[in-house]
Design a protein around this nucleic acid. Structure first.
Length: 491
RNA sequence: CGGGGCGUAGUUCAGCCCGGUUAGAAUGCCUGCUUUGGGAGCAGGAGGCCGCUGGUUCGAAUCCAGCCGCCCCGACCA
């Protein structure tokens, strides 16, 4: 009997923790706030990476790598950026240890090795990258620069949760430089679309695209765009961000180029990123009390075949049938595993692969061998069907597509059922307690936003991009408003 | 950094209040046999600086002090 996962409706956050650990995605490490991503978790992340990486390359970007350590002075260059990140930076002050003079085997920081200029571990890389761009950009002919890096970064968080908020996390950060404002804005929105497409078509998580309010804006950006998703507890999770940085970093790092008219101009910047936090979104959007539910397009393993046998002869007979199926599936690029280990019983294997989120399970016993059938179980609905072996490859390929689609449809239906249009303060506060997304009017001031957050813990997730102009009054202050914004409690 | 809780077998925990045999259970692990269509059964076995340091005591997992670490709730945040 495996350890029990806390049920979702008993304690959602315990369910999440139990699930991440028991499904073998990740665990806490010896270093507080830093997680170990285990093979199963990393395999999903790798799939996310390779899909996104292709999309970045298809949109003209190239990868590079910039240093982990950033001189403290770089962070000071852009004021908003500095203020935003200063309080969560790990700082390197020394470069050497030495043995303790009295205690054998103990090491101490060598006070002689203090760095002249302290280095910070990157919380994000705008500064060190724009410092480089100064050397790379002289003319409009050098633009645009479209660079992405896959990296780890560190933000010294007070409270951490596996995948959702860790001190060290893995992500990609795109950093582009452009000759014109229009082109930079276009890039910002283009990458937001890449993210939205990825979330919806691969993660099977519907998202709302929008702009952040001033309060929620990235430190150093003029505009921050985001994709917001709803988790099964009705809370919002920001799954990706794309920033229009204007000329802030070009000015801070003195990045100027000669335009066609021979005049010096500051370059225009964007940055955009998604992180291992998406793993949290994936888990919380789809999984259930039995374990992970992974959409086929991200699953490290699509199909597991579990033989049910009493002896070696039976296993041989089943294996022969299974081999044909495996061959057929592999020809269709379906990733399949035949689990013929005799160290665990079939029932145990069923539960284990459900916990790991494998989309399709094929069970084969002697009954099936005789009838030329298999039993197919889909992870998303837990339905079991007995099907004939003929054209099984095509059947499973089609089933994987259906699972992918069903997971999206289900997530979308859940979001729709938990999204409310609200006009009164009483209704607003009542609904926020119950969870979900709320579209309400807002007077556009930070003061009102802060007040609402203080009173309800809800924040403005974004000003939706597909929102329509509509006259109304602010749900809190009663002042006039011309557009609804999206409120929710968030991760 | 505030408020609370907890450190005992790989894991989850009992024992501590009220000090006294060889420190227990469940689960997991190993071996063997029987099993195998939803987390099997029986038998045997291995596994512990009781978080660390010091103190009290004839004697400490248990009492006292200090330290370290972890978890939960707040403030901060992708």
């Amino acid at each position: 009997m495996a350890e029990k996962i806390t049920k979702r409706d008993i304690n959602y956050s315990e369910w999440y923790n139990d699930l991440v650990i028991q499904s073998g995605l990740a665990e806490n490490s010896a270093v507080r706030g830093c997680m170990v991503i285990k093979p199963h978790g990393w395999a999903i992340w790798e799939n996310m990476k390779s899909i996104l990486d292709k999309k970045f390359k298809d949109t003209g970007h190239v990868n590079a790598s910039f240093p982990l350590l950033i001189p403290k002075s770089f962070l000071e260059q852009e004021e908003g950026h500095a203020e935003g990140f200063a309080k969560e930076c790990a700082v390197v002050t020394h470069y050497r240890l030495k043995t303790h003079p009295d205690k054998k085997g103990k090491l101490i920081v060598d006070p002689e090795s203090r760095l002249e200029e302290e280095l910070i571990i990157r919380p994000t890389s705008e500064t060190i990258i724009w410092n480089c761009y100064r050397g790379w950009i002289q003319s409009y002919r050098d633009l645009p620069i479209l660079i992405n890096q896959w990296a780890n970064v560190m933000r010294w968080e007070m409270r951490t949760r596996l995948f959702l908020r860790t001190a060290e996390f893995h992500w990609q950060e795109g950093h582009t430089a452009h000759a014109t404002q229009e082109e930079a804005v276009e890039e910002t929105l283009k990458m937001l679309d890449v993210y939205a497409d990825f979330m919806e078509n691969y993660m099977a998580v519907p998202v709302i695209k929008g702009v952040k309010t001033a309060n929620e804006r990235f430190a150093g950006a003029l505009d921050t765009y985001c994709v917001e998703a709803m988790m099964q507890d009705g809370k919002a999770l920001q799954a990706g961000t794309s920033h229009f940085l204007g000329q802030n970093f070009a000015k801070a790092f003195d990045v100027k180029f000669l335009n066609k008219e021979g005049k010096l101009e500051y370059a225009w910047a964007t940055s955009w990123g998604v992180s291992t936090r998406m793993m949290g979104a994936l888990i919380m959007a789809h999984s259930d009390d039995d374990g992970l539910v992974i959409p086929p397009r991200l699953a490290p393993l699509h199909v597991v075949i579990v033989p049910i046998f009493k002896n070696a002869e039976q296993l041989a007979a089943i294996t022969e049938k299974a081999d044909a199926i495996i061959k057929e599936l592999k020809a269709l690029n379906i990733i399949v595993k035949f689990d013929d280990s005799d160290t665990a019983k079939p029932g145990w294997k069923f539960a284990e692969y459900e916990l790991k989120g494998v989309p399709v399970r094929v069970a084969m016993g002697m009954r099936d061998v005789e009838n030329n059938t298999v039993e197919i179980a889909r992870r998303d609905t837990k339905e079991k069907t007995t099907v004939a072996n003929e054209n099984l490859g095509a059947y499973i390929q089609d089933l994987l597509e259906k699972i992918q689609q069903n997971m999206y449809d289900k997530a979308l239906a859940f979001r729709t059922a938990n999204t409310f249009v609200i006009d009164t303060w009483d209704a607003f506060t009542a609904q926020i307690e119950k969870g979900g997304f709320i579209y309400a009017h807002w007077d556009g001031t930070s003061e009102t936003e802060d007040k609402i957050k203080e009173l309800t813990k809800a924040t403005i997730r974004c000003i939706p991009m597909d929102g329509v102009e509509e006259a109304g009054t602010c749900v809190y202050s009663g002042k006039p408003s011309n557009k609804r914004v999206l409120f929710a409690r968030a991760y």
